[in-house]
């Protein structure tokens, strides 16, 4: 291991050469990345606006909410496809939104990394479970 020992972990509140963290970055401009997350969050919100309205109206238009009625609806192309997109985008948009909350309230680098990974694992895991359930309704043997 070479190099100064105190370079181990970046501390946002201290900086070398007698400059504050803000003083160090002032004038450098933007990081030139990070915009994709912002755009993606808005694109998924626009998609969810359409799919959310579709979801509520579809439930209201069904004759009843019995299991067979719902399963039949979710087996049809116009039930399954928008529902699969709705489920996927709900989890995608949630992941993006929770990331903003974590970035805003977790000042500590380690904590931010920890909660980002916890949120990612939970969203991917539970989201996969929800899509599995939908696939089973649509493609499984009808009960």
């Amino acid at each position: 291991m070479t190099g100064p020992k105190q370079m181990g972990r970046f501390d946002r509140n201290s900086a070398p050469e007698g400059k504050t963290a803000l003083g160090k970055v002032r004038g450098l401009g933007s990081a030139r990345h990070g915009g994709e997350h912002w755009v993606r969050e808005r694109v998924s919100s626009a998609a969810l606006l359409l799919l959310g309205v579709w979801f509520i109206i579809s439930l209201l238009l069904l004759p009843d909410l019995r299991m067979d009625t719902l399963a039949e609806w979710l087996r049809s192309p116009l039930g399954f496809v928008p529902m699969a997109l709705f489920v996927y985008l709900c989890f995608e948009h949630s992941l993006e939104g929770v990331k903003v909350i974590i970035d805003d309230y977790q000042g500590d680098d380690g904590g931010r990394l920890f909660w980002t990974i916890v949120s990612l694992f939970l969203h991917v895991g539970v989201g996969a479970l929800a899509l599995f359930a939908l696939a089973r309704i649509a493609f499984g043997a009808s009960a």
């Binding site: 939104g97 989201g127 929800a130 939908l134 499984g140």
Partner: peptide, 24 residues
């Protein structure tokens, strides 16, 4: 509301689909 939907909303959506997939 975003956090409420992220937690309770997604759990409920997943439970609802699993319940339909699971049978009567």
């Amino acid at each position: 509301t975003g956090m409420a939907l992220s937690i309770a909303g997604l759990v409920l959506l997943t439970w609802w689909l699993l319940a339909i997939a699971g049978g009567a």
